[in-house]
Design a protein around this nucleic acid. Structure first.
Lengths: 249, 249
DNA sequence: CTTAACAGAGAGCGGTGCTCTCTATTATGA
DNA sequence: TCATAATAGAGAGCACCGCTCTCTGTTAAG
């Protein structure tokens, strides 16, 4: 028996983790298609109007079906939002991963990933707000979102790990994070790569800066401060790269 | 003739900029009181349930009046939110200013202000989300919000300016911001104090970090990373303080 | 071929922001 | 003092929203 939850999950996994066992009956095929159509309409509404303006009823109208019928596919608005969140996390993660060129110099890799994330954010500002904005009160992020949320941060961590492996990581400057502040489990972010508490803290700062400075730009907090947002963003990337020990400058 | 806008503004100014010309007629007094009561009820609902759950109708119910009557005082839900935004910006600005002790050592001042902002945020998380979270699509921040939004950032800038005036500012390390990236108007943040483009950029980074790292903590992004949030926050404050040139360590 | 699962439609519930009209009250100026 | 104008509140109503329930027709499975 299919529940809406299962189906949404199936569509997502199918779209992002390769095809599952293909639907065999006509009904299953129609179900998968309609689920995808609903998700596509939702994504369009999200992109154009933002998550606050996204309603199941207008999606139903757009697809020419009764609003109650949509609930056969997504059990609630929250579940539809979850699907969009997973989709967005996956896309931004892929953007980061695809921008990374493991053979290149660490500075180039770092800058390329930062720029790719910003590009995605500028092209998908409502999606960006959905995943990095204020969480809706009462909304609990399902486990599946936590899994996909890590791809972008881990791409940055990988660059640092590779640089250190090549012996090109500059010794840390500035205050060192007290080890008690960091959860020891976090020192194993990547397989076979151990990070010190201070390195974890520095990585957190980098993620925080990347997310935060893009948020500042998107929300207009930089409007009267910067004269050239791209230039300022590159400077931000370089600053954080230097901070974590990449051979910038 | 009073419009709801004028009255909301009057209440705000009265509450935060000292009493205006006192209401003279009984009607004017009743109006000012009811406006304040509505605002108080709204603040309570905001604090308890978050901005998404705030509705004019439930406020009207709570105060025992018809929902349409509330519109005599606030022309729309957005306007009520604006009043709450102004209130929150003012409170966080006052928290920052009151924590600052202009006579003390710059490191102590810096840390005290950072901690005060965090304390306010932890005690008023929905208010914090309202002013630093994702802006509502379509919502245009009125000019009055922009005025009060600057108090907290300027408190930090003042510490830096004072430190430099005393000759205790450490020379900058790390990449220098290209001047073309920064709006020249921003080099005059405080009266009589000029900042270089690089200093403005560093200040922006500090504001961005303060807002961002508290957001990370409030939204649970640090949950599995940090073991001691207060300790980690202090480390954050010190790191940014050292970055901008305060004599930390 | 029977039976169970499923998909869709439609009505309905309680909620929202907001508008409009109507009435009662208050303030003001001749 | 009194007519007039401004104001406050109530209530009905509009168009939405998320979500549930029931009913009907269709598809798949045993």
């Amino acid at each position: 028996m299919h529940t809406p939850v299962d189906n949404a999950r199936a569509v997502l996994l199918c779209r992002y983790n390769g095809p599952m066992n293909a639907p065999r009956t006509a009904r299953e095929r129609a179900r998968a298609e309609l689920t995808a159509e609903i998700l596509a309409a939702a994504r369009r509404q999200l992109a154009e109007e933002g998550s606050a303006m996204l309603s199941l009823r207008s999606i139903a109208r757009e697809l020419g079906m009764a609003s109650s019928a949509v609930y056969r596919y997504f059990a609630s608005r929250d579940e539809l939002l979850t699907a969009l969140i997973v989709q967005s996390y996956t896309e931004i993660g892929e953007a980061a991963e695809n921008a990374d060129l493991p053979g290149a110099a660490p500075q180039e890799r770092w800058l390329a990933v930062w720029r790719a994330v910003r590009e995605w954010a500028l092209a998908n500002r409502h999606e960006y707000a959905l995943i990095f904005g204020t969480p809706v009160p009462g909304y609990i992020a399902p486990h599946i979102t936590i899994e996909v949320a890590g791809r972008m941060p881990l791409t940055l961590a990988r660059i640092v790990a590779d640089t250190r492996k090549d012996g090109n990581l500059t010794p840390a400057t500035g205050p060192v994070c007290p080890p008690e502040a960091i959860n020891p489990d976090m020192t194993l972010l990547l397989e076979g790569e151990r990070f010190s508490a201070d390195e974890v803290a520095r990585l957190v700062f980098c993620w925080n800066r990347l997310v935060g400075i893009i948020g500042y730009e998107l929300h207009g907090h930089l409007a009267n401060v910067t004269a050239d947002d791209s230039l300022f963003f590159d400077h931000t990337a370089r600053t954080e790269g230097a901070y974590i020990g990449l051979p910038f400058r």
